[in-house]
């Protein structure tokens, strides 16, 4: 899928090596203006190094980075129209919240009055107007995160880079911040480039996401597309649960919630793909139940079923039973054509 509008960030052939290790391996990437773009991948996949090269903390060995058509590949961080929200927030401990937010304006010699006003607006946006006089050490993790965000946004960068900004927060706060970040992004209209290893974060927030693996991008696209049509076994496993089986010389994957589990001899629908198997294990997870089914024709699939009416005791009784699984053929995503198959 091509991004709409002119690309704000254009990366081509970007490579970074550390000794013999290739951290980023000749990646190409176009990010549109105003887009919420996520770089998703496990640790060591090259996503953070890519972000740091866009920010200017690392200089690429090969390739170029263009910001709004201007080649910035070799400019120092202070000459690039981007700002970063750091994973550890990197707030200046000797300054107040207000001074932290004003820092970028201060070093760019914005006048005192304007500085105050803009910092005040930024703090208001992150709902911390009342905390301007505090030191970062007097704030909670979530508040520090907001200060870091305000400190970056106040400079009105072309692009905001976020390096796992929610990684240090607990689950509930993280989910709140996901919603808030997204609404702030819509409000300010700045391009966000967001690095995370959390697939849920990537799926819920992004306009598009790129999945990184071993220094390369394996797939780029809107979240629903990447989730439902993974192009490789790695993506099938990393974004969601790997549910790969091999049939008729093809390897393909089906998402667990797309599979219908039929018990008590219920008949499958016409045209559905049907597999018979034995329930090896059942996990009751509250709203849903996860079944691990060993298939008669080889392989194993996970099935996710909503607990619409069943209670925990009923679903747990399914262990050891014979069941049939059904799904519609269009839910299958082919990963590999094995020998005998053609392109």
């Amino acid at each position: 899928m091509a991004p709409e509008g002119a690309p704000d960030i254009s990366v081509s052939g970007l490579t970074k090596r550390y000794g013999d290790v290739v951290a980023v391996d000749a990646i190409d990437l176009d990010i549109a203006r105003g887009e919420f773009f996520t770089m998703l991948g496990p640790s060591g996949s090259g996503k953070t190094t890519t972000l740091r090269m866009i920010a200017g903390f690392e200089i690429p060995d090969e390739g170029t980075i263009e910001l709004a058509g201007e080649d910035v590949s070799r400019l120092p961080p202070y000459d690039r129209p981007v700002n970063t929200v750091f994973q550890d927030y990197a707030l200046f401990p000797h300054m107040t919240v207000q001074q932290n937010v004003e820092y970028g304006l201060m070093v760019r010699k914005v006048k005192r009055g304007e500085r105050r006003q803009r910092a005040g607006e930024a703090l208001e946006m992150v709902q911390l107007s009342a905390h301007g006089d505090r030191k970062p050490s007097q704030l909670s993790g979530g508040q520090r995160q907001r200060v870091a965000l305000a400190r970056a946004i106040v400079n009105r960068p072309k692009v905001l880079l976020l390096d796992e900004p929610l990684g240090a927060l607990d689950l509930k706060l993280r989910q709140e911040m996901q919603i808030e970040l997204k609404s702030i992004q819509r409000e300010v209209g700045i391009t966000f480039v967001y690095v995370t290893h959390d697939q849920e974060e990537a799926l819920t927030m992004s306009d598009r996401l790129a999945v990184f693996n071993q220094g390369r991008i394996e797939q780029v696209g809107p979240p629903a597309h990447v989730y439902e049509h993974p192009e490789s076994e790695f993506i099938a496993g990393f974004v969601g649960v790997s549910n790969v089986i091999e049939r008729d010389g093809r390897r393909y994957t089906v998402r667990p919630e797309k599979i219908n589990i039929l018990m008590n001899g219920r008949e499958p629908q016409a045209g559905a793909h049907v597999e018979l198997g034995l329930v090896r294990d059942v996990q009751y997870v509250g709203p849903v139940t996860r079944y691990h089914v060993t298939l008669d024709r080889g392989g194993e699939l996970q099935v996710l079923a909503q607990n619409l009416e069943e209670g925990s005791s009923e679903v747990l009784e399914a262990k050891g039973r014979r069941v049939s699984l059904e799904w519609r053929p269009e839910q299958e995503s082919i990963i590999d054509e094995l020998e005998g198959g053609s392109e």
């Binding site: 200017g56 120092p76 981007v82």
Partner: peptide
Amino acid sequence: SLLEASADLGGRSLKTFTRVILPL
């Protein structure tokens, strides 16, 4: 990361030195 943050926000080496390194 504090020095990177200073550079990221537009602080050149001298500013980073006088505003961040020296006070800390």
